[in-house]
Design a protein around this nucleic acid. Sequence first.
DNA 1: AATCCACAGGAAGTGCTGGGCG
DNA 2: CGCCCAGCACTTCCTGTGGATT
Length: 450
Amino acid sequence: MKRPRLIYSWQAIPKVLLVAELLFMEKRQNSRSRNVFDSLMSEERIFKNREALSSTFVPSEFPHRNDEINDFANILKPALYGARPSNILIYGQTGTGKTAVTKYISDQIMQKAAKENKKIHTAYINCKQTNTPYGVLTNIGKTYSSEWEDVIPHAGWRIDKVYAALKQKADDNGGIAIVVLDEIDALVSKNGDDILYHLTGLNSDLNNSKISLIGISNDTKFTSWLDPRVKSRLGEESLTFAPYNAIQIEEILAQRATLAFKDNIVEPLVLSYCASKAAQEHGDARKALDLLRISAELAERDNREIVTAKYVIKAQSVMEKDQVRSIITTLPIHHKATLASTIVNQGKRENGQQTTGEVYSTYKQICKLFNLEDLSQRRISNVISELDMQGLIHAKIVSLGRQGRTKFISVAINENQIQELFAEDIELSDIIEELTRSGTYIRSTQMRLI
DNA sequence: AATCCACAGGAAGTGCTGGGCG
DNA sequence: CGCCCAGCACTTCCTGTGGATT
């Protein structure tokens, strides 16, 4: 395969390096004894404990989740008597506390088991990160001992060998293993339900141990894809986490704010503002916590001692921009080329909407210009769907009668943001620059973009 | 009602990489 | 060293589809 060739603005690089080096030398001479972090670390004005606002923080109390915690604990209780708890499926939209509550319950049962001298193991697997049967099985194995990682290579073994090794390990160690499969839908959509079929059937192969599964999903319809046998085995019990309303989110924020901030740092309005913003987004408490954290960080950067609503507004735009930036900079080259074609084509049609075929033909011209080997239309059709899912473009399936069935595609990010991002992203700006130079594209669009 | 368009998107296959095993 | 396996990105082939047009 041909390597993607890109024309970097290499002339600029030596200049930038030179200026940076000169500035650095000057600084080095002027302040040899001073460290740049000295002034920054002199005093924490706002935060007492930043961690309390992070998405991975597991608090000791969960406002408005007492019922769920009680139900959860009741289902897992048999583990403390040496019996296998039912498998559980947990549903709820993002930011409803599913993962945090599950981690909390896992910690609690481990503590209790240690006190009562019971053998309970817990594993937490995020199926979006570990989304292969091989990875899931090895991660479950780690539940029993940390050396397992050294025993099982991260690739190479046949899957049934890993499965057999896991069975052996489980029986050698005994006890009850509680395995949490977070974002379980990602595992199923990628691999089918084979892996769940084997996992849910694992207990019948075990003599000296038992495994219970906790599946977490934000897609309530995900079980409809499952084999009926897997469905009934996995969903022995189910719990649903309803979205929080604005008042509940505000209470959660207030609880975390007392842990995270020093006293009287946050304007009361700030919490309700963050809460109402997050409540609009389907009661996502995680979003509210992020918004609060970033608002406080911005206030801190401005050397303020109080977080005002002004910073929440600022934080909101920072969050949106950062999200888009991080997505774009990490896109593979063909995704960037596809995005560039939609941007360049925007305006070709009166309503700004273009079809898959139009995007593909522009994409092919881009590949030609950059000496990239072009991918098939089938693949680019998938790339378009991926970009749509990432929120960079809008793609809507439409039927144009005799003109066939296609997607109407438009760019989802605003023009100012595009210009800023183009200036930052060498690959994207190169593509557009080259298109302008070649002069084969819609001039009106280029004039707006460059 | 039949036809036809321009794809959508599922399924199966390919080629490659990175690993283990005998 | 050659073979086997899992995983990934992609291609090829195929069937399905909604609605304007005939």
